[in-house]
Design a protein around this nucleic acid. Structure first.
Lengths: 136, 136
DNA sequence: CAAATTCCTTTCATAAATAAAGTAAAACGG
DNA sequence: CCGTTTTACTTTATTTATGAAAGGAATTTG
């Protein structure tokens, strides 16, 4: 089970996953090797799944961030799923959901023009409702 | 501007942000110091915003992942915003959106009971539409 | 209660990061 | 067109971190 030190480690690694084991250890009052062993346990137990970076997509040219609720036209979702597989550069997440819609698609676009092209392609396989992120 | 090596670096760091600069350098055919300088530039230019971990929330006891579309009852959003500030443990993201709703709230819950409590509290300040994530 | 396990520290060898110096190629400006 | 500056890199050397190994204290287990 996880104790408070483990939760602190998760918190610190969430804030900065490139911190050294030594420095992380200082924050949680352990030595480097002890901290390293804790982290390895968190990996082995499947709690830490990976180490990644946060990228500012706006600075990479993707100024539009949107959620698109998908309602596929027929019961076979394959045409939709095949379509989005060709649009990887715009995709962030594709969640299968319950509720109002079949999927919730999280996307990024460099411009309204590109988004419009995407939506026209999408519309051949599914109906959708578009929500553009304004903040946060 | 970003060249192909920078994009490769972003890609590799997305997959594993704890890779050593030496090993990352080998992947992009640069020495450690040169790679380190590239990464520092990506940080300074605001493209790399941070280093973080991917946590398996299910293994942390949060087996329910949901999106909640919020429609606040009156034009003043403050009661809603104040409410969610007290519910941090369940929150992943709160996006202000255009389209159908005012906010899109991404949440995690350990059980239906806790989710139900949350929704009852939420309902004092806003109407909502709940979408539970089934996959991906 | 003895043995085993867990969780830690310390020590030490190895590996990586970082700072500094030097170089080659490209961009700039007269 | 040529000298100067800038950029992006390599190499080297020092500092720092990692990771393996040994050992110890506290807790668990039969």
């Amino acid at each position: 089970m996880l104790d408070n030190t483990d939760l602190q480690i998760l918190d610190e690694l969430s804030k900065n996953s490139r911190i050294s084991m030594k420095e992380l250890g200082e924050k949680v009052h352990l030595t480097g090797p002890a901290t390293s062993a804790r982290v390895e346990k968190l990996e082995d137990s499947g709690i830490i799944v990976g180490y990644t970076i946060k990228i500012n997509q706006v600075n990479l040219g993707f100024s539009i961030h949107a959620f698109i609720t998908i309602i596929t036209q027929n019961t076979n979702h394959q045409p939709y799923l095949s379509f989005i597989k060709t649009q990887e550069k715009y995709l962030i997440n594709n969640y299968k959901i319950s509720g109002d819609g079949c999927y919730l698609l999280e996307c990024k676009f460099p411009s309204n023009e590109r988004m419009n092209e995407f939506l026209e392609g999408l519309n051949e396989h599914a109906n959708y409702k578009l929500s553009i992120i304004i903040d946060k």
